[in-house]
Design a protein around this nucleic acid. Sequence first.
DNA 1: CGATTGACTGACC
DNA 2: AGGTCAGCCAATC
Length: 121
Amino acid sequence: MMESVQLEEMEQKQADHQKNSFERIYDVVRQIPRGKVASYGQVAALAGNRKWSRVVGYALHANPDENNIPCYRVVTKEGYVSAAFAFGGGNRQAQLLEADGVEFVDGHVDMEKYQWETPWI
DNA sequence: CGATTGACTGACC
DNA sequence: AGGTCAGCCAATC
């Protein structure tokens, strides 16, 4: 009785633990609508913790599914892309974002306009 | 297995 | 106003 409950909880906890930051982060990033961008902190907040901003960066760096994970839609809070990210040249991202309908101006996007609207803000 | 780093951010000087 | 510092968590070496 109690044991089974405990075991169940434990399993649940384990399952939850398995679906940790990375999966949640990927899930959030995947949900970024076309034509919008999100900041690392935003994704982190949606993933569960604001302080995961760096982890978000790391998760995107690992980016196991760049096909399904539009990392280019994740920018710094200023709308710029991290220097280390400039994959294939900063221009590359501008192209991808413009293809999404995001206005890319002077190497950065207008966050006021294109930041993904989320409940956290 | 411990130390380091990393695609960030916010606060402080 | 702008640069520097520290903090956060997890993956990598």
